[in-house]
Structure formats: structure tokens, C-alpha cells
Nucleic acid binder design. Structure first.
Lengths: 226, 226
DNA sequence: GCCTATTTATGAGCGTACTCATTTTTATGA
DNA sequence: TCATAAAAATGAGTACGCTCATAAATAGGC
């Protein structure tokens, strides 16, 4: 019973009228979704600064003040984009059976490429928000926790993939640093991507391919027993 | 004569009253300095969000509107911090003769350590601004150019140091990628630094030392002839 | 169904970053 | 020295993100 308090979406009891408290929760859930959908569409179209909270609430069909009952700030709202993105990425990888036996560089290329494709329609928005999502924010913000969780989730995801490569002797055992390195590498790639004026961001993709192979190669040759 | 238009501070003609147009330019220069000084002190004390443009202009002894004749936005104003920092770093390195013959990891450690010391009093401010300083901003902003210049200046500085290490066979020839890697590495270090709760940021310094030696080691062993 | 407590929605109001028409200061040429 | 043009300073005004007192909606007990 007490376990329930750890569940994000309390299970509805089937008894009582209209599932009891369920109606309220359902509405809340729906409103939140409406806000997120409206915001993302506007962000995609006009970027972060180009979108006003008035526009968002108008498009979501709620009062201006209501928006702030759901998201503490406009920035917090923007950061939910990355929760969706990460969850989507992990789900997608889980379903890409073909990838699971591929060599490490190929795997990482596919994963990062997928992330770039996901953010592609939101370029301006990403430029404004991506790096903020990585910085620590005021301790009181609930998003401080949430973004921390998100980072850990991503790191665990990468760690698992690297651990598998270690087992297969594709790379020497590099431990926890590996996942941080990949995260950092991704930051670098996104920076390059943002500055990249080439058609279809081809230059970034080339850099991605080149540097992944390079890094794996160096690791293989150099070993890690220093 | 026509060369003058390329000079940032037109040379004063000694004739005419009060050096002619000089008085105006001098005042402008002074006002800009006053604003910068006031802003940095307030940023250090209250962070970026905690400082209002009203406070800045009040402390600088000017009207609110005047501030925006000198800096397009509060953020642009904040970014001038990094110009000062980079210039200071390069000047400092030039004067540190002792370092010029040190091994590469030691050199890089000293440089990055110096950067961390420079930003230390501004932690909150840095958290809010550092990564924005790396992102491309709207093409129309004059700071777009200035921040681009600043990045190139830093990259050239690092490139020179790496080229020297290549000559001494400390590392294999890694070309232009090296400087990017160092820049990226610095981003990672700053991220760690911002999250680091340890006394005097010792953990970050340890990480810095460890990873620099590691990277150099791997490079030496692995070579680059793939 | 009805009363009460709790949750959710509302929009006028606040302080902010920033703009712009106007005023003040400075440079120039006669 | 004065008249005129150019540059710089000014601060009331604007749109924004966000708050908060109040109103509406919902849940639970009788």
C-alpha cells in the first residue's frame, strides 16, 4: 500500500463514481499535455525567445496564470523537451534489434545521429536551451531534481552500451569515465551542429563518423593500463 | 589617411582645442569602463538574474537608457566578461616563462587552472552565462562577430601550444582537431566545476590532472596513424 | 443531493529588460 | 563667438515573464 506514494500515476481504484479522484488527475494530465504540445509547436516555429507565454496559454486554451501552475518558468517548460527526447531515444534503441550486435562506433553513430534528427526541426530552440539543460539550477527548483534524474538516465543508458563493448573486448575497460566522455562528446557534436551551415549538416555527420572511429581506434591501440 | 577608419581608437590630432574629437571618444571609453566595472561587481555579488539593469546604470551613474547605447542587451554586457578573461589568460601565459618549457600536461593544467581561478568569484554568474557564450547568436548582433573572434583567438592560442608539443614529439601530429578537443575538454571541466561541492573544488582539480595525463598517455601509445 | 474542504483556474497587477521620441552636449566652420 | 549639425543622454512608455488574491470546480462524508 505504501508503495503507492512512489508511483507517479496513482493507480485508479475501479470502484466509486467515475474512478473517484481520477477525473481530476485525468484533466491535469490532459492540460499538461496540451500545454506541452502548444509550447513545442511554437518553439519550433518561433524559437524560445520568439514565443510568449501568452501565445502558449492561448494556444493551449487556458488562462495565462494557469500555465505557471504546471511549469514554474518558461525555461522549465522548455526543458521538458529533453525528457521526451531521452525517453524516445531509449525506447527506440530498445526496439532496434539490428543495432544490438553492431560494432561500437556504428552503434554510437546511430544513437547520436538519431538524437540530431530528433532535434533538427528545433534548431533555434536548441541553440537557446540545450546547454542550459546541463547546468545546475537553483536548488529549490523541482526541475533541478528532474534534470539530474534525466542526466543519470542518459548516463546509465550509455554505460550499458559501453559495458557491453568492454565485454566483447571492443575497447579496454574504461569504467564510468566512458559515459561522461560520450556525454561530453555529444555536447561537442551539438555545438558543431549548431554552427554547421552545410547542406543537411553533412559536415557534422562526417565529423561524427571520423571522430568515433578515431577514438575507438586510439583506445584499442593505446590500452588503458597506465 | 583612409586607414583611419580601420582603427578602433582614431589617433588624436594634437592640433585644435582639447585634441578635437578626442574628448567625446574619451568620455565614451570611460563610460563603457564604468558600466563594465559596475556590472561585473554586481554580477559577482548577485549573479546574472539577481542584477537589474537599473542597478547597473545607477551604480555607473548613468540613465537607464544610456546603458543600452553601449550594450545591446544585458546578456551582451555579460559576455564581455569572457573577452577580458581570454585576454588576461593570453597575457599571463606570455609572461610565464617558466611554463614555456614544461611538459604538455603540466602546461595545460596550469592554463586551465588559471582559468578556473579567474572565474571562481563569479560562480553563479558563470553557471548562467558560460555556455551561452559558446552558442551562435542571431546573425545581426555585433556580438555574434565578436564572440566568434574570441573563440578563434582562444583556439589559436591553444593550437600554438599543441603545435609546439608536436614539434617536441610529446604527442603525435593531431592537427586542428587538437584545439577543438581542448576547448571541448574545458567545457567538460567547467561543467564538473559548477557541480563540484568539494572544498576548494579539489575534486575538479584532481579530475583535471588525472584526465590530462591519461589523454596524453593514450595519445603517445596509440599514435595517430590510422 | 448537499455541505465543506481541497484543488485548480483566472486575470489584474508587478517588476523587468528594452525602445524611442525628445533634450542636452559636443564638434565644426565661418 | 555664434549657428548648425552630429552624437550621446535621458526617462516615460511597452511588452514580457511571472505572482497572488480571488473565483470556480471537484472530491468525500453525510
Amino acid at each position: 500500500m505504501s508503495v503507492l506514494i512512489f508511483m507517479k500515476q496513482p493507480a485508479n481504484e475501479k470502484k466509486g463514481k467515475a474512478a473517484s479522484k481520477g477525473k481530476r488527475n485525468l484533466n491535469k494530465e490532459r492540460t499538461k499535455e496540451k500545454i506541452l504540445a502548444a509550447a513545442l509547436e511554437l518553439f519550433r516555429e518561433h524559437g524560445l525567445e520568439g514565443t510568449t507565454t501568452k501565445q502558449i496559454s492561448r494556444k493551449a486554451g487556458i488562462a495565462e496564470g494557469t500555465l505557471f501552475n504546471y511549469f514554474k518558468t518558461k525555461e522549465d517548460l522548455a526543458l521538458f523537451f529533453f525528457q521526451k527526447e531521452t525517453n524516445d531515444l531509449i525506447r527506440w534503441y530498445g526496439q532496434s534489434a539490428r543495432l544490438h550486435d553492431a560494432p561500437l562506433p556504428e552503434k554510437l553513430f546511430a544513437i547520436i545521429h538519431r538524437q540530431l534528427e530528433y532535434i533538427a526541426p528545433y534548431e533555434e530552440f536548441i541553440g537557446a536551451v540545450f546547454f542550459r539543460s546541463l547546468q545546475p539550477r537553483s536548488k529549490l527548483s523541482p526541475l533541478s531534481l528532474e534534470s539530474q534524474e534525466l542526466r543519470l538516465k542518459y548516463l546509465r543508458f550509455v554505460s550499458d552500451i559501453l559495458a557491453q563493448a568492454e565485454e566483447k573486448k571492443e575497447i579496454p575497460p574504461i569504467g564510468e569515465l566512458g559515459a561522461y566522455a560520450v556525454g561530453l562528446f555529444y555536447m561537442g557534436i551539438v555545438t558543431h551542429w549548431l554552427h554547421d551551415p552545410s547542406e543537411g549538416k553533412q559536415k557534422t555527420l562526417a565529423l561524427l563518423d571520423r571522430s568515433l572511429n578515431l577514438a575507438t581506434n586510439v583506445l584499442k591501440k593505446g590500452g588503458w593500463d597506465w
